[in-house]
């Protein structure tokens, strides 16, 4: 056989092979395949959703994701629905604000007992604010919101409940002396007067 022919044939075979390889590379990942993620990591991703509604929707995506609901449903969704059962008189309290692990609830009732409760469902602890809502109304304060960690640091407090002190707590809520702030203002509070209040431990 003519050696030139042979070399040309080799070249064309090599070119074809190269083309095939390129095609394979192009078709190797037609779409982003989430199956590249292991079950363990997928579960950790789902746990980052932090929302029962999102978890339920995620559990309706496909068989594989559905199989993980057994892992997260009782742990999260169930506890979210039942997490406030350690409250006294649950029905009369409504959730007014939440940040991190803390929830602030206020009672729609008027009277000497009404006020604010800051609770931590994770540890099933709650504390009632020393400033009742009736006092807030008298002073013209229109709302109370849980503060961010940075802001609490300014007030000498911290987010989360402290169990180091037996008689008081460093957890505090911030009382805004203005109309209910917008969401943007809540995220980036303007320099307004706020009263960090100590919360009393009930239990």
């Amino acid at each position: 056989m003519d050696p030139r022919m042979s070399s040309r044939k080799n070249r064309s075979t090599a070119a074809r092979r190269k083309k095939t390889v390129l095609l394979l590379l192009a078709t190797a990942r037609p779409t982003c395949v989430v199956d590249d993620i292991s079950d363990e990591v997928l579960e950790l991703v789902l746990l980052r959703l932090h929302s029962p509604a999102c978890l339920i929707r995620a559990a309706s995506v496909c068989k594989r994701w559905r199989s993980h609901r057994v892992g997260f449903r009782p742990a999260l969704v169930y506890s979210c629905r039942r997490s406030l059962d350690f409250f006294p008189d649950t029905a009369s309290w409504t959730i007014a604000d939440s940040r991190g692990s803390l929830l602030r609830s206020s009672s729609p009732r008027r009277g000497p007992d009404d006020g604010l409760i800051v609770c931590e469902p994770l540890t099933r602890r709650y504390q009632m604010a020393a400033v009742p809502t009736s006092e807030m109304r008298r002073r013209g304060i229109l709302g109370a919101f849980l503060a961010d960690g940075d802001e609490l640091a300014v007030a000498g407090g911290r987010i989360g409940m402290s169990s180091t002190q037996a008689t008081g707590s460093t957890a505090c809520c911030t009382l805004y002396k203005q109309n209910p702030p917008s969401f943007a203002e809540l995220l980036n509070p303007p320099p307004i007067k706020f009263l960090p209040c100590r919360l009393l431990i009930l239990d």
Binding site: P30, T31, C32, V33, V34, I37, V45, L46, R48, L49, S51, C54, R57, A58, S60, V61, C62, W65
Partner: peptide, 21 residues
């Protein structure tokens, strides 16, 4: 990845992640 899932319907999640029903 979790943020991609958040706020989506199951169908939208399938599209976003290329998951078959």
């Amino acid at each position: 990845i979790a943020d991609t899932i958040k706020g989506k319907t199951p169908e939208e999640i399938r599209t976003a992640f290329g998951i078959e029903y």
